[in-house]
């Protein structure tokens, strides 16, 4: 089982590494999105300092959303998923490897780069740790919530618009608590972090399970 997991994980990672479009797309989109904020505010540094945390969260959300489209698409189209299903490979391994890889190539670079961009946007060091922790809990949640919806829309003709329309309402609670948690971090309150952790611990059990159900349904 562990060997299978490592095998599939390495296959996924290779898929991301060799397909440069796939791996750099999310991060490139994040960088472009971040660029919009200072440019669109007309050089008002006061305003930029205020919305720096929110803008990083918004860009993380959109980068995640944009990369959801390719999560299962390729494997579904070329029949890899069906082959997995026929060969009775447990679906939770597939789903978890997909989740880990998706987070590794969209969430993780953003978490690593976020302190840099916070300094670049706001010019101060105060909220770095708070933002880092909240993104650390928040981005896996984005990937987890996006997974079942990405699986749901497989095979639909107008997939992109439907995916965006369906996913954003489910992302809203995460971004609300994510931004709130950074703001209350400086005053020593961690209640939003605990709430996000609670959602993560529920989500990491139930959302892959729902994804497995949906994927099996779409293959039959």
């Amino acid at each position: 089982m562990t060997r299978l997991f490592i095998l599939l994980l390495s296959r996924e990672v290779k898929g991301y590494l060799f397909n440069t479009n796939k791996s750099w797309f999310a991060l490139g989109f994040f960088l472009l999105c971040i660029l919009i904020f200072p440019l669109s505010l007309g050089g008002s540094e006061d305003l930029l300092k205020k919305i720096s945390i929110s803008s990083i969260w918004i860009c993380a959300l959109f980068a995640n959303l944009i990369s959801l489209e390719s999560l299962f698409k390729e494997d579904y189209k070329n029949g890899t998923l069906l082959q997995y299903h026929i060969n009775r490979i447990p679906f939770f391994i597939i789903v978890f490897t997909k989740f880990i890889c998706h987070w590794l190539f969209t969430g993780f670079p953003i978490i690593i780069l976020s302190p840099l961009f916070l300094i670049f946007l706001s010019g101060s060091y105060e909220n770095i740790l708070g933002l880092f922790y909240s993104l650390l809990i928040g981005t896996p949640l984005f990937s987890l919530i996006g997974m079942p919806i990405s699986a749901l829309t497989l095979g639909s003709a107008a997939r992109g618009p439907i995916l965006v329309f369906l996913t954003i309402p489910f992302f809203l609670p995460i971004i609300i608590f994510g931004v709130l948690s950074v703001n209350s971090f400086s005053s020593g309150s961690f209640s939003e972090y605990y709430l996000l952790c609670a959602i993560l611990s529920i989500g990491i059990i139930f959302l892959p399970y729902i994804t497995i159900k949906i994927l099996k349904e779409s293959l039959e």
Partner: peptide, 8 residues
């Protein structure tokens, strides 16, 4: 799709 989305 409909049933699972309403579940989520």
């Amino acid at each position: 799709t409909f049933a699972y989305l309403s579940l989520v």
